[in-house]
Amino acid sequence: MAEQFDHPAADSPDAPRAVRPWVVNPQTGAVDLDRQPLPGEPEPDYFALLGLPRRILLDADAIEIAHRSLIRGLHPDRFHAQGPQAVAKAQWHSSRVNDAWRGLKTLEQRAAYVLTLAGENLDERYRPPANLLMQVMEANEAIDEAGHDPAARVQLLDLLSDFQAQRAVLTATLAQAAASWDAAQAAADPAAASTARADLRAVLGQARYIDNLIGRANTALSAPDAAYPAN
């Protein structure tokens, strides 16, 4: 069994070297399936499970690499020779690593997760701008009415690219707000954090509508019996 090793403080600043994955010793790569939290050490959150700094803006490749290297060592297939108990523990630890990876994949997910960790209740009502709802409603109706009419489908493509453009703007805004949030955390600046939090909420409150709509439009356009407009 690997020796016990220190776990970083959950709120440590973002120096990546200080961050360690949960049951894998980052120096030796040794896996300790029985590792328990040290006294006073919090249960690991998604970032700690993957050994990543708690930031919204993270390099997608870095997340992939962290997940891959951990799952390579922790996957239950690796423990078959050590018997069913080791396999069961590996199932649990690798499931947590997979959950963390899945939960931090997108910018939106990381923003929502970080806000939740910061005590924000994302289920509370947030009212998006009224014109957004009207636009989404009308677009939904247009998708329903398009059917197989080729001209309507061409319009649908226009509509789709409009919403994709809107989504791109939201993503850019989100990235900005995320950068401000990360910076505010690093600098321990509550005023800046509060502004960033409001911005993040606003973007998250709108993104879902547009994502749903883009999904519906794509589904309608790729319907099997559809006459595809030339593009």
């Binding site: 709802l133 989404v136 939904n140 409150g205 709108q206 879902r208 749903n212």
Partner: peptide, 9 residues
Amino acid sequence: VGAPECGDV
């Protein structure tokens, strides 16, 4: 009206 958590309108 809309529900931002699920995107329903």
